[in-house]
Write a protein that binds this DNA or RNA. Structure first.
Lengths: 235, 235
DNA sequence: AAATTATGGTGTAGTTTTAACACTTAAATC
DNA sequence: GATTTAAGTGTTAAAACTACACCATAATTT
């Protein structure tokens, strides 16, 4: 009763994580410099194999938390890669995941131990196998999601300024945005709380801090509201 | 050199296909009444296991063509389902695919042989395992895609009328649309060729036939145009 | 042959949303 | 107190969207 499929082949199944961070006005990926075969010396996405009692999602969570120390962060399945020859070593079906983290939160020691490094998405090193394809898919997904869901906040500190938020969107879309229109749109959705504090690290005047309010957002959703950010032009 | 991962577990990997058709003003799914264990007597999505020399995509193509006789139709990977207990028989990672076909094209004999039947999405039978979850994901994906990409045409005959196209969108979104606004929007995108023929099967007057023109669409894409269909209100 | 019936086809006006654009404010530094 | 640098703010024109109602065509019936 528990071996219906005994005549079928079994295969290696892996998970790989595309982990985004935002720092210094640019998007970055957490990549591993491999010190083991296959592809020793090249760069790869952090990955691993699901354990016997682990689903795919749990395996991805584990890979992420073993590398960064983070749990309960944004993690979404991207795509399953199953070409026969995608891994030259042996056939492996790899399920890619995409994660967005607040870059100041990760565990530096763990990252160092694992030989991982943050690399700007605009200047990536050569990646093993089809990992670049995964990254490109993740980028496209991020661009689509960020336009229609409030996920940008996953990449920012709890408290952030309007200029910070705008520069995040500019990094994601590689486009300059008009700050008046951007700010107007963001505030019109009424899902941000304006705080009394200012962040003075980037200007003399200081910029007001905001916080994303998930309760307000849930309420809006319930009212049939759709999040959208305009992400057109400005020269 | 070709067994780096020999200490890792291997798993069953399957593909399942959510196959949409449009007929009689409603969306339908091609489902299989299972006459074998597991879950004999219940309904399931058509599926199978990749062969040794087959990637996931090829396996899905094979499942689709073995059941319908169709090749080179719309087929897109949906999601990988990997919970440990999703299949009570044995752990199976299943990669779901979504296909859109022109319902008049499928091979009736093959479908009959395989004990498959078209069932309306609004009145589905009980499905095995997590197949309903897959169908729901496919529905959401279809709704998203149909709004922003010209994929509705995959579900219609080569030549179709404006009322047909509209009723397809109404079936997808379960909403009545205003025919003036709908028609205006569709034509404004300039990707349809209006033919000189009329279809007289549904009215005395007859309705003009149109055809989707992929070359025009490609040109629009190249010009930075975005396909969108408005899918709001009307009472 | 006139009337009926059922579906196809078409235009406009009010409203909302979007895009473009420039100057003032605040506070630190010299 | 003059200068510098980033933050903050409002208006207007254009485009897109929504709502809405009547006529046309051709087959069928009387």
């Amino acid at each position: 009763m528990d071996r219906y499929y005994s005549h079928e082949d079994r295969q290696l199944v892996a998970v790989d994580c595309v982990i985004f961070g935002f720092d210094d006005q640019e998007l970055k990926l957490l990549l591993i410099k491999r010190n083991m075969e296959p592809a020793k010396g090249l760069w790869s996405l952090p990955g691993g194999f699901p354990k016997k009692d682990e689903g795919l999602d749990q395996a991805a969570e584990r890979v992420l938390s073993q590398l960064t120390g983070l749990k309960n962060v944004y993690l979404e399945q991207l795509y399953a890669y199953g070409d026969v020859d995608r891994d030259p070593g042996e056939r492996v079906v790899s399920v890619a995941y995409c994660s967005l983290i607040k870059i100041e939160d990760y565990d530096k020691d763990l990252v160092k131990e694992n030989n991982a490094h943050w690399r700007p998405v605009n200047d990536l090193p050569d990646l093993v196998f089809d990992h670049l394809v995964m990254v490109e898919k993740a980028m496209r997904r991020l661009r689509r999601r960020a336009r229609t869901q409030p996920i940008g906040f996953e990449l920012l500190p709890e408290k952030f300024t309007m200029p910070q938020l705008q520069s995040l969107y500019e990094a994601i879309y590689q486009k300059e945005l008009d700050k008046r229109n951007f700010c107007k749109k963001m505030l019109s959705m009424r899902m941000l709380d304006k705080l009394d504090e200012k962040d003075k690290s980037t200007s003399k005047k200081g910029a007001f801090l905001y916080r994303f309010n998930p309760e307000k957002y849930e309420q809006l959703l319930a009212d049939g509201f759709y999040f959208t950010v305009d992400v057109k032009t400005k020269k």
